[in-house]
Amino acid sequence: MDAVAGLLDAPRAREAFLLRCSMAAPWAVEVRDRAPLTLLAVVRGSAAVTAGGERHRLDAGGVAVLRGPAPYVVADADGAGRPADPCGAARTPVQAVIHPGQRCTAPDGGPQSAMGEVGVRAWGNAPDRTARDVLLVGTYAQARAVSEDLLAALPAVVLVPGEDWCCPYLPLLAEEAALEAPGQQAVLDRLLDLVLVAVLRRWLEEGSAARRAGQGWWSGADAVVAGALRLLHEQPERGWTLPALAAAVGVSRATLARRFTAAVGEPPMAHLARWRLAVAADLLDETDAPLDAVARRVGYGSGSALSAAFTRERGTSPSEHRLRRRAGLGSGPAAASALDGVASSTGWRV
């Protein structure tokens, strides 16, 4: 698996929050839910996304991937005759604010009545049949440890304009979002993953400014670094040393250390240590494997050695990590409390 394949393979929706937004202009929503990753797609009409001080227009078929936890504003793309925002573009005043747990309030923190549920997993200020702007919002409430590490390499906003591509999965996701059927959440999770992977792949293929400049380890611009990353990511269980890794990619230790650090931002062995702990965290989340088995999978000689490194770097023991993550993502009263309004709600809650 190369670096880009690792990037695309990482996202895994698990009871993701998915909503179809039906809007009649003027409209504007500020999202402060602190979600690690959000996909926003325009099904019909247009929208403007403002994040990190920059405003981006999306027309039908366009998709934005927003890396959290920073807030963003999504609004009608016109804003004609309304005050200018800090970017100098006319904008609609925010009418609703989304908080963690998908709780919705007015901008002053009080109740809001401008928007509400308008159907199955549908929310907005107009029914779908009369809405000018229809969007899909897919929120990954909790990222896998590996995806956190990989997606950190992306910019705050990834944009794929609708005129640049045609995603076959997007219409299917929009259709399925309006249905209630057995196993529907699993279907929506997998379709959301497909759309996200398709967006990231298209963005990489198109050649962003960073990719053209050869920036970012995921760009693959440095074949030596890409080869070293592939070995470390595919075989974290091996007892890698800098000399062994350098020999495997055919360069000297000094050359590998210099080029790897320049591209990745940390030395090879430091990256391997972080990668091993990220993989271990995901194995703890997704399997019932004993700690000793997890340790062997990621290159530690024993469960106690892994536990010591895990606790030192992440501030919690492997057993505590497993319990906390499963309380938030599993079943039962604890999960219901932790995911209040995220997985089960059909809309943003007032």
Score class of each variant (00 low, 15 high):
A48G: 11
R253E: 14
G332A: 03
A28H: 01
A223W: 12
V160Y: 00
S22M: 13
L291R: 08
L159Q: 01
V249K: 07
R103H: 11
A13I: 01
L173A: 01
T130A: 12
G347M: 13
P161S: 02
G162I: 13
A336T: 13
S304A: 14
P182T: 00
W275M: 12
G301F: 02
E176H: 10
L135I: 04
E176Q: 12
A122V: 05
P127G: 08
A334F: 10
G53L: 10
E180S: 08
G227K: 00
E148P: 09
G81N: 04
L283N: 02
Y140E: 14
A308R: 15
G207M: 03
V224D: 08
A114K: 08
S147C: 13
R212W: 04
A309W: 03
D128A: 14
L200T: 03
T261Y: 07
L272C: 01
L7K: 02
L200Y: 04
C87E: 14
P71Y: 03
L232D: 01
A273P: 00
G315Q: 05
G110T: 11
E205D: 15
L242D: 02
Y300M: 04
L232K: 05
G119F: 10
V158C: 00
N125W: 12
E15Q: 09
Q142A: 10
A262M: 15
P268R: 00
P100I: 03
V199F: 07
A343P: 05
F260E: 09
A24P: 15
A64Y: 06
L172H: 06
V42F: 03
G347R: 10
V279G: 06
A257L: 15
F310R: 01
P236T: 05
A305P: 09
L151Q: 13
P111G: 05
T38H: 13
T241Y: 00
A174I: 00
L329S: 05
W165A: 02
V249A: 04
A327Q: 09
A60M: 07
V298T: 04
L37Q: 06
L150D: 14
R57A: 15
R296L: 11
S319L: 14
P333K: 00
L173R: 00
A293N: 02
R144D: 11
N125D: 07
R325P: 01
R349D: 08
L150C: 15
P290N: 04
D292H: 09
L37F: 06
L306T: 12
A213E: 13
L39N: 07
L245N: 02
L231M: 07
C104K: 15
D128T: 15
P333E: 01
